[in-house]
C-alpha cells in the first residue's frame, strides 16, 4: 500500500524549472531512496513534502490526506518526521531535554499552555526519552549539553528525536553527508536496525551510493527535476540511463 503519493508536482523558481512533473509512490514500510546528481531537485522535492515549499501544481498525499498548504508542524503531527542534512538539534538544551520536546509535541499537540506543571514530574515521558536514548546508545550522555556533542552523536540525537515520536514516514536528507567512513557505517547500521525493528517507512535522499545500496528497497533516480527511472537497487546499478545522468553522455 502506498503511504506517500506525489502526483504531477511542478515547482519553478523564476526561470528555473526545479521540479517538472514529478510522480513518486512510496510503499508503506519500505525504504525508498531518491538519488540524482547535484541540482536534480532532490532537496526541492523534500521541501515540498514537509511544507517548507508549496509546489506550483500537482498533489502530495500522505496516507490519503493532502499535505499541501499545511505548515511544517501540522505535517509533523500527521506522522512525518524529518532529519536534516546538518543535524538540527536544540544546542542550548541537554540531550535528554532534546528528546523530551518531541515527546511533549507528540502527547500534547502543537500548543498547550502547561505552565504550572513541572518537567521534573513527567516521569513517564522522561523514561520514554531515556529508553530512546538507550536505543541509539546515547543514554550515558543524557546530561550533556547538546551543542558539545560530536557530529556523529548529533546525528544520532536528531534521529532519536524523530524516532521517539513513532513517525509513520521518516524523511532523511543526506544523513551521512560529511561523515567519516566509520560514522557512515554506524549510521547505516542504525538505520538498518530501525528499518528491521519498527513499522516505519523511510525516504532517503543520498549522494553516497554505498548507503543507498545497503538500505534501499526501491530507488528513484531524479535528473533535472524529473524522475528518470524507478526500480530495485539491482536493476538501477547497471541501468544505462542512470549512468548517463551521472556521468554524462560523452562517457557512454
Amino acid at each position: 500500500m502506498a503511504i506517500l503519493e506525489v502526483k504531477g508536482v511542478n515547482k519553478r523558481f523564476g526561470g528555473l524549472q526545479a521540479l517538472g512533473d514529478v510522480n513518486l509512490t512510496v510503499a508503506e514500510n519500505s525504504v525508498h531512496a531518491i538519488i540524482g546528481p547535484n541540482g536534480a531537485g532532490k532537496s526541492t522535492l523534500l521541501n515540498c513534502l514537509v511544507g517548507k515549499l508549496v509546489p506550483d501544481t500537482g498533489s502530495v498525499m500522505f496516507d490519503g490526506q493532502s499535505v499541501l498548504g499545511r505548515k511544517p508542524h501540522e505535517i509533523n503531527q500527521m506522522g512525518i518526521s524529518r532529519v536534516f542534512q546538518t543535524p538540527e538539534i536544540f544546542g542550548d538544551l541537554s540531550v535528554l531535554e532534546n528528546v523530551m520536546i518531541p515527546c511533549f509535541a507528540k502527547r500534547d499537540g502543537a500548543f498547550r499552555m502547561h505552565a504550572i506543571e513541572s518537567v521534573g514530574a513527567e516521569k513517564e515521558l522522561a523514561a520514554k526519552a531515556m529508553q530512546m536514548l538507550e536505543d541509539v546508545s546515547m543514554a550515558e550522555k543524557h546530561d550533556m549539553h547538546a551543542a558539545s556533542l560530536s557530529r556523529g552523536d548529533k546525528r544520532r540525537l536528531e534521529m532519536a528525536m524523530c524516532l521517539v515520536q513513532d513517525p509513520r514516514l521518516l524523511l532523511l536528507d543526506e544523513p551521512t553527508a560529511g561523515m567519516a567512513r566509520a560514522d557512515t557505517n554506524n549510521t547505516i547500521d542504525l538505520l538498518k536496525e530501525i528499518r528491521d525493528k519498527r513499522d516505519i517507512t523511510m525516504a532517503i535522499i543520498e549522494h553516497d551510493m554505498h548507503v543507498v545500496f545497503s538500505l534501499a528497497e526501491r530507488i528513484t533516480v531524479l535528473a533535472q527535476g524529473t524522475p528518470l527511472v524507478e526500480d530495485t537497487p539491482e536493476n538501477i546499478k547497471g541501468h544505462p540511463k542512470v549512468r548517463e545522468a551521472y556521468l554524462g553522455e560523452a562517457q557512454v
Binding site: H73, N76, R82, I101, G109, Q165
Partner: peptide, 9 residues
C-alpha cells in the same frame, strides 16, 4: 526551525 519540524507551533 527544529521546533516547527518537531510538531510544535
Amino acid at each position: 526551525q527544529r521546533m516547527n519540524y518537531t510538531g510544535v507551533n
